[in-house]
């Protein structure tokens, strides 16, 4: 097992797609469909890395990221979002995200980013 990944996205399609990419590559996957569930799951499962969407119903992804990093300064979070504005990249980088993957993503991009962040390359 390469690592445990928490996928946080309000889109079931995105969560399913990421699971289909991650599991065959050797990752263990847990899911959360909103920010509050994500915070709960993070502290129950202690995943190695979080893939976090930004535009979600309820708690916005940036708020989830900020909360996660407040509660665990070492939390490794990769943003996977359709919000590709330069200002969004800057905001999440300042909030402690380790990397940003634009939607729509491809398999190689997700796996390479995950491997880099887990290896500490993208930090």
């Amino acid at each position: 097992m390469k690592g445990r990944v928490l996928v946080v996205d309000d889109s079931a399609l995105s969560r399913r797609t990421l699971r289909q990419i991650l599991e065959p590559a050797g990752y263990e996957v847990a899911e959360a469909e909103d920010g509050l569930s994500a915070l709960e799951r993070y502290f129950l499962d202690k995943p190695d890395i979080v893939l976090l969407d930004l535009v979600m119903k309820g708690m916005y992804g940036l708020d989830v990221l900020t909360k996660l990093r407040e509660l665990d300064a070492d939390a490794k979070v990769v943003i996977v979002s359709a919000d590709i504005q330069t200002s969004s990249h800057e905001l999440v980088e300042a909030a402690g995200a380790r990397a940003f993957v634009n939607k729509p993503f491809d398999r190689a991009e997700i796996l390479n980013t995950l491997a880099s962040v887990l290896a500490g390359v993208a930090e």
Binding site: D10, S11, L13, S14, L54, V55, M56, K57, S81, A82, D83, I84, Q85, T86, S87, S88, K103, P104
Partner: peptide, 28 residues
């Protein structure tokens, strides 16, 4: 469909933000 439109909105917001110099707040 929501996810596809979300991706389209994201592209449009990035163009609009680049042109106006303002941040566009996206919602689902």
């Amino acid at each position: 469909l929501t996810e596809v439109i979300n991706i389209g909105f994201g592209r449009a917001a990035a163009s609009l933000s680049k042109l106006t110099g303002q941040r566009v707040q996206l919602e689902v």
